[in-house]
């Protein structure tokens, strides 16, 4: 599935701690453009921390990482929005604005990019249609079921044709049938060229994308991977010179 050698994500020896707790330890891997990667592992393995680092929600302290052409090490606050215009994120808890309509929520990233209104309308309608939400466009999101709200979050993520889509347990709150349906949607967008990294510990979900890569994290370390290349280190390693000092204001 990873057909192009040019990496969309390159992570090298990345470690991250919250106080005395190490959430990531010496993680190294890369993923080419158009790739599909499952981050798997138990709760607390570091999947969410890795995803947060990749979209600039946490500052990168130790190691190096490049995402969609952005070097995350020392990435200034002013450049974080630029990174996020290339990288869309879907969360387990949806993170949509419940008081606003479905169409308003999906249009949000386009408005932020100053896309003309006519284009916004056209693209929002197209995405909602593709996700079966076109009849709910004007409904406030608070009226929708969990599955529908998750589809709104996905619609918001893909409406801008991101280079990279990060999804953190996007099927965690959904039943099996709905989860598999969403995986079909992810697969479809992956075939259109969007690189996807999806964190999950659901084996059914992983089985739904047979050609995808798998990277297993345990206690912050890469403990298994479904492929081998020069940019991948599976051997767990401790950071060499003790815990890195956490930076103030860890959120962005």
């Amino acid at each position: 599935m990873d057909t192009t050698p040019e990496p969309m994500v390159r992570v090298q020896h990345v470690s991250h701690n919250f106080g005395a707790h190490w959430a990531l330890r010496n993680v190294t891997f890369s993923l080419g453009k158009g790739g599909f990667l499952f981050l798997c592992g138990p709760s607390g393995a570091g999947k969410t921390t890795l995803l947060r680092l990749l979209h600039g929600a946490l500052p990168l302290g130790r190691g190096a990482a490049e995402v969609a052409g952005f070097q995350l090490k020392g990435l200034s606050g002013a450049r974080v929005p630029l990174l996020r215009r290339q990288v869309s994120v879907v969360f387990q808890d949806f993170r949509i604005l419940p008081g606003r309509s479905v169409a308003d929520n999906v249009a949000l990233p386009l408005e932020v990019r100053a896309v003309p209104r006519a284009t916004v309308r056209k693209r929002v309608n197209a995405v909602l249609r593709s996700l079966g939400l076109d009849d709910k466009a004007l409904c406030p999101c608070s009226w929708l079921s969990g599955g529908e709200q998750q589809r709104v979050a996905i619609a918001r993520a893909i409406v801008v044709n991101p280079q990279l889509l990060l999804a953190d347990e996007p099927t965690g709150n959904l039943d099996r049938a709905l989860a598999l349906h969403l995986m079909e949607i992810f697969k479809q967008f992956n075939t259109f060229g969007t690189t996807i990294i999806l964190a999950t510990h659901n084996r059914d979900v992983m089985a739904a994308v047979p050609g995808a890569r798998h990277l297993e994290l345990t206690d912050g370390r890469v403990t298994a991977a479904s492929w081998r290349d020069a940019d991948l280190e599976v051997a767990p390693a401790e950071p060499e010179d003790g815990p890195a000092r956490p930076k103030p204001g860890g959120r962005r």
């Binding site: 606050g77 929005p81 996020r84 993170r95 604005l97 949000l108 990233p109 932020v112 918001r156």
Partner: peptide
């Protein structure tokens, strides 16, 4: 705060 977090998430700049 949620609204601001979501705006940041979708790439809104500081002034937006």
């Amino acid at each position: 705060r949620d609204e601001v977090d979501i705006l940041r998430l979708v790439g809104a700049g500081r002034w937006y």
